[in-house]
Computed example of a mutant assay.
Amino acid sequence: MPELDAFAPLVASLGQPGFAPALMALLHAECGADLCSVFAIAGEGASVLVAESIAPERSAFARVASLRYAQRYWRRDTSAASTLGRAHRAVQVLKRPAQGILDIDYRHECYTEGAVVERLSLYRAGTPGIIANAYRARDSGPFTPDHLRAFAAMATLLHAALARHAALARPPEQPATTLSWREAQVASMTADGAEQPQIAEALNLAPSSVITYRKRAYAKLGVSNRHQLRALLTGE
């Protein structure tokens, strides 16, 4: 179990925008995680509570992948739903390699595109249900046994913090319309402050294609500028 002092920044930021970076820092320090996500599950829907990366250049991927999972893949992820259904009396902790995900589209968009090789997951049923994930990138390699033990040791306390944060901070409203993968990529990078030439180079797209995807994303999300887009995607 990590020293309780390690949880201090997380507890201090409950219900605040700084909660996501504090959670990422904790999971990176104690479990070697490179990215993290947290979903609140209510009824048949999933909302993104946290989508974060320890590396700034991966922040857009973390947000896009989490949003796409909530919008498109949660209802197809029968394994996660089944595990959450069993997690009524205690927190469930599981490790899963990316190659163990049989849904090819889900694996490609949420793992392969971000060079993610493995995840550790915390499941706890409730109102809402909570699913929290820590991920390792390919260049870091899989989680070690010590990482798994550290994650499992903090799971109960971590869930308590996540549940409290969910109660204090209303999850950002999730866009009702599902964006395409490219639209989501362009929208997230735009929200992160990237300019058109940067996005075009990073995604290997023509500048005119970036403009098209951005216009489509704005229209689907009902926003008209970068500030509104960022507020919608991040809740800030």
Rank of each mutant, 00 (worst) to 15 (best):
E3C: 13
D5M: 00
V11P: 05
Q16W: 07
A25Q: 11
A25R: 11
A29R: 13
G32M: 04
A33T: 04
D34T: 06
D34E: 05
V38L: 07
A42F: 11
G45K: 12
S47F: 10
S47N: 09
A51G: 06
E52A: 10
S53N: 04
A55Q: 14
F61D: 00
F61I: 00
R63V: 13
R63I: 11
Q71F: 07
R72Q: 10
T78C: 12
A80Y: 08
S82R: 13
T83H: 10
L84E: 00
R86K: 14
R86L: 15
I101G: 03
I104Y: 12
I104P: 14
C110Y: 00
T112D: 15
A115T: 04
R119I: 12
L120P: 04
S121C: 13
S121D: 09
S121P: 09
L122I: 02
D146A: 15
A152I: 00
A155Y: 01
A166V: 06
E183D: 01
S188R: 08
M189S: 08
Q198Y: 06
E201C: 09
A202I: 07
T212F: 14
Y213T: 02
R216G: 15
K220D: 02
S224V: 15
N225D: 15
R226N: 07
H227T: 14
R230M: 06
L233S: 02
